[in-house]
Design a protein around this nucleic acid. Structure first.
Length: 412
RNA sequence: CGGGGUGUAGUUCAUCGGUAGAACGCUCGGUUUGGGACCGAGAAGCAACAGGUCCAAUUCCUGUCACCCCGACCA
């Protein structure tokens, strides 16, 4: 991609209404732009990141037998009345047609998936079943805030599991814990598996919390990593020893980037979702749900991985592999050499953002490279004597390498 | 939803009862090229919206809307 053709330029000053670190950085660097409060457009660079996050999640869901589908955002009011949530789910947005018919705008999808699954599941042979989607959700937050961290429209992965036996559910719940750990590692997030309340569904649930002052939750956790609980439900307090005798426990603000939740038979009961066991008896299906806020993850990464100059994207979610700069000058062949490097890198399968602006001062290019935060920066310049400067965004050091060596480095 | 604050050019901000100005960005010309470079010339605004006061309102008053912050809320 040539920078000169890229839609979405960087800006020096963030709009004054973008106050949170993540939205400031993502707006300045041309990844997102706010539409209304709590609702963001994703520009090409931002969408690339969003897709990479989604793809990692998708891969891991597929790996444990998840089947992807896509459920509607515009939902069925009757189903929500059946579960009682038409009245009790405060953040439910309701859309009205010209004829005054009301539709819930999906904040979550139990009311859609359970009736759907009921049409296909009737025997123990149909279970277990793991269905997920990555889809836009709507929640009528009384106050949207913190950029991508709490919006009214956001992208979320939700998986629903259906089981014949409690035992089977428990086994899968543990698999999900491992899977979530792996997902967040790949996303470059240090997410603590945190014990949380179960709301109206169950006694407990688990949240995946990333420590940051921008977060809204408070967690009590052991710095050695063997305990973490949401402060709302934690029986132990800051400063005490954890269950393995480590200590002292710490208290921090954190942002919830995922959660997993036993649903029991609450929704199966509401919709009469049962299966026939071997004796021909109807048994309610046991369910679990498992969410990851895709757009919130993007915000959390920007919130946590940055420095004074801009974002520092983890490799797996970066919008491009390389930011290529040529420091041109009319007399030398720098422009040609940079063009050649661009072509070679592309041929080698790398996704390159080539800053091909001819009249921009070198400083402007460096500043944009740092702000956008692509993990590797390459500089072609007459100063580098036929080699290319290779620099990691996260490091202050750089080295001069040949093109072949650089390509080899990426393959490794 | 309670409290506080803000709406002026794409962005950040000035102005102030006499109908709008800078910087950045943008366009054109020229000079530049290792940390947001320089010179010159331009384009760009229904001053959120509606009403009121006044000879005259971006400016004062009222209302509405939007946005931000704190709190409450967040299956």
């Amino acid at each position: 991609m040539r920078y000169s053709a890229l839609f979405g330029k960087t800006i020096k000053d963030a709009p004054k209404d973008e106050v949170s670190k993540n939205s400031k950085l993502l707006t300045r660097s041309g990844f997102i732009r706010r539409e209304v409060s709590g609702v963001y457009n994703f520009l090409p660079l931002g969408l690339k990141v969003l897709k990479k996050i989604a793809d990692i999640v998708r891969e891991e869901m597929n790996a444990i037998g998840g089947q992807e589908l896509s459920l509607t955002a515009l939902q069925n009011k009757e189903s929500w009345q059946k579960t009682g949530r038409w009245k009790t789910f405060r953040a439910l947005m309701k859309a009205k047609t010209q004829l005054e018919t009301e539709y819930p705008l999906g904040p979550t999808h139990e009311e859609v998936i359970v009736p759907l699954v009921k049409q296909f599941v009737s025997s123990y042979k149909d279970l277990p079943l793991y269905l997920y989607q990555i889809q836009t959700k709507f929640r009528d937050e009384k106050r949207a805030k913190s950029g991508l961290l709490r919006g009214r429209e956001f992208l979320m992965k939700d998986l629903y599991s259906f089981h014949a036996q409690e035992k089977d559910f428990n086994k899968f719940y543990e698999i999900m814990k491992k899977t979530y750990k792996k997902v967040f590692e790949r996303l470059g997030l240090d997410a603590l598996e945190t014990l949380a309340g179960g709301g109206t569904f169950s006694q407990f649930s688990h949240e995946y919390q990333v420590i940051t002052d921008a977060g809204e939750d408070e967690i009590i956790y052991c710095p050695k990593g063997d305990f973490s609980a949401n402060a709302e439900v934690s029986p132990v307090k800051e400063g005490e020893a954890c269950r393995l005798g480590h200590g002292p426990l710490k208290k921090s603000k954190a942002i919830e980037v995922g959660n997993i939740f036993p649903l029991g038979t609450k929704f199966s009961d509401a919709f009469g979702l049962t299966y026939k066991n071997k004796e021909g008896k109807d048994i309610p299906v046991i369910m679990g749900c498992y969410g990851i806020g895709i757009s919130r993850v993007m915000g959390a990464i920007a919130e946590v991985h940055n420095d004074a100059k801009g974002i520092i994207w983890p490799k797996e979610v970066a919008p491009h592999d390389v930011y290529l700069i040529g420091i041109t000058n009319n007399e030398s062949r720098i422009k040609e050499r940079t063009d050649e490097a661009y072509d070679s890198l592309k041929k080698a399968g790398l996704d390159v953002l080539y800053d091909d602006r001819e009249d921009a001062a070198p400083g402007a290019k460096f500043a944009d490279a740092d702000l956008i935060g692509i993990p590797i920066r390459l500089v072609v310049s007459k100063r580098n004597e036929g080699k290319i400067e290779f620099k990691e965004r996260k490091s202050a050091k750089s080295e001069l390498l040949g093109l072949e060596e650089i390509i080899k480095k990426f393959k490794a």
